[in-house]
Design a binder for these strands. Structure first.
Lengths: 351, 351
DNA sequence: CCAGAGCCTGGAACCCGTTCCAAGAGAGGC
DNA sequence: GCCTCTCTTGGAACGGGTTCCAGGCTCTGG
């Protein structure tokens, strides 16, 4: 592999000149530039990224820390990030995080080494001490799907989204509305499920519907778990006529559970999701759409701004939410039908 | 940020000694090691990855080149890769590729720079000249989902898989079986759809079923496109009673198209996919399961072996396929029902 | 014709580890 | 007591870029 020395020797110039040619400095005469360029092409010379990084004191990689990146929503975000970062001179280094321990090691790494020029953190919380160290390390950081004071971030208003979803169900005529969400048992302290639940409560309160504790079911964020929790809900005396799930993935678990019991959606149970992942239109899920791909793009763009030393970086960017009505929600007309079935009492006793 | 010099000065030793302590060399006395370690901890010293990479002449990143990494199958593979690579001392650098032009630039980069210590290429073909240059560049490469002579690779037997899928449909009693696959219009020359089609033909030939050209429909690999192609199939005189799609994603498009026409699956149309992506069990799709996650793991393991200079790396690893029968395939009993409908002739004229 | 300014250019110093070589210290053998 | 051998250790060289400084050249104006 040829080095800058080889090029310099071959072209009969100094290494400084070659460096200037590579970096498009104006301080090179046209004739010299042409001569050096010919040699570069002849030798197939490419500067060593590593040597350059060492010399410049900064790396050319951007680290992205994503928990559970197999999740459809994470993938969409990642695609937005990748599109922007791959377009730039930086490389995208991917860190998947599946345990709090892993998360801490990633943060440790990010704060302590020169591995990455910048950092995008998706969904994860940040402990104050880690935030301090990130600040000390002078590594630009952008958070995505998480509000962090003092650090640039891209977010959606999950409370408002949760409220809108619930309001949609209320407007359809539902009063027995349950919530299936995330209990943060993995220890990541994700905020979105909590916030969406807060929105759910807010909507109920505003509509004057009393909250039923038994209607709020939390568990690990998975389809399977949502399935199980829905079973519990449907076993309740006076079961819900509608369920708002904290994510589309969980909503699918809810639908599945309803079907397993011979209930049809939306006739017997309305189901509302959150995210609008790519299979949701296909499956006819009513949901709250958040611009996942765009959120990735925006976060990456903000980070690149920070890296280029641009002062004009917004402190935060809020992206819009939108209720999308599809086939999984309908008025609770079914209750009339339901009442022609065995009375609620006998139904209870079946359980 | 402290450097190895700072540690050496503070500890009153030479830089060589500090380096030895860091790397666990045996040539350091216990007392010195302890003294140096204390200083390292005090200063919070972490060696610079970049300087180390420059000094060692190799980087600590592994590049993964994936086309369309949003595809569910690509995500599963990526997760396997990430799990193994993040466990090692290497970082995973992700390159998404969506156009042939991008692909070529990635290869260019991989062959020419020291950016990555090793390379995993997913699904993509490799032109002979690029293969040569990769060889010259001494960068270890593992291909995944693609057979390449002379380069280690992880693969499944797509021909056998396609044959098994088709045989499954034949065994159920189908004779009018169509194939919906990928026409490689993106210019990536993916092999899997072509191979699966070859398997489909093989199965027909072995069963003595004449091939109908009109039953083979190719288009861009997407749900939407498969939807459209299925429409064409169902418009044929003597339409198929079963469709084998080259991927689960395309199979969903087929199912969707059937439902749009009021046909039910599997009564009126059996549908078979390929991959067994994570939503497939949920949607009851019969398919050919390939171990996507495992394939990623194996490829990463092979690459790490190569990087550690291990001689014992297999030239290739073949992973098993398995037909998974779910709710989207059934005997073509519907044909009896179909015959009670308007006769085939009149049906044709409707079109 | 000369001074001064401006433009180019070469090359040394630097970034921060690793590694090899030389040398010092201590132990053991004779 | 001296020589060897082994165990440790310090430090210079090295990897491949970038950047700054000094110097050479040309050109201009007086």
């Amino acid at each position: 592999m040829p080095t800058i020395q080889d090029v310099a020797r071959q072209a009969g110039v100094g290494v400084g000149t070659v460096s200037r040619v590579i970096n498009g400095s104006a301080l090179v005469s046209e004739s010299t530039r042409a001569r050096v360029q010919v040699v570069i092409d002849e030798l197939g010379y490419r500067p060593s990224t590593i040597a350059r990084a060492l010399s410049l004191g900064r790396s050319t990689t951007v680290a992205v820390i994503v928990p559970f990146f197999t999740q459809p929503s994470a993938v969409e975000r990642l695609r937005g990030l990748a599109d922007v970062i791959n377009e730039s001179d930086f490389d995208l280094v991917l860190f998947d995080v599946e345990t709090p321990d892993q998360r801490d090691r990633r943060y440790e790494m990010a704060a302590h080494t020169d591995r990455a020029a910048g950092l995008v953190v998706v969904s994860l919380a940040v402990q104050p001490d880690v935030a301090d160290r990130l600040g000390e390390a002078q590594v630009p950081v952008v958070f995505l799907d998480r509000r962090v004071v003092g650090i640039p971030h891209v977010f959606v208003d999950d409370v408002a989204g949760g409220e809108a979803a619930t309001r949609h169900l209320i407007r359809l005529g539902h009063r027995r509305i349950a919530f299936v969400g995330d209990d943060n048992s993995v220890g990541f302290d994700f905020s979105s499920s909590v916030d969406r639940c807060a929105g759910y409560r807010l909507a109920l309160a505003r509509a004057g519907i009393p909250e039923r504790e038994a209607f709020i079911r939390l568990g690990p964020a998975s389809r399977r778990e949502a399935h199980r929790l829905t079973g519990e809900l449907l076993d309740l005396p006076g079961p819900p006529t509608a369920v708002f799930a904290a994510s589309d993935l969980q909503a699918f678990g809810v639908i599945e559970a309803a079907r397993d019991r011979g209930l049809s959606v939306p006739e017997d149970l309305s189901v509302m999701g959150f995210d609008d992942i790519d299979v949701s239109p296909y499956l006819g899920l009513s949901t709250v759409r958040q611009p996942l791909y765009q959120s990735g793009r925006r976060a990456a763009e903000m980070l690149l701004c920070l890296l280029s030393g641009d002062e004009e970086v917004p402190a935060s960017v809020e992206l819009p939410l939108e209720v999308v009505e599809r086939r999984s929600t309908a008025p609770p007309a079914s209750r009339i039908t339901a009442n022609t079935r065995p009375s609620p009492d006998s139904r209870d006793s079946i359980r």
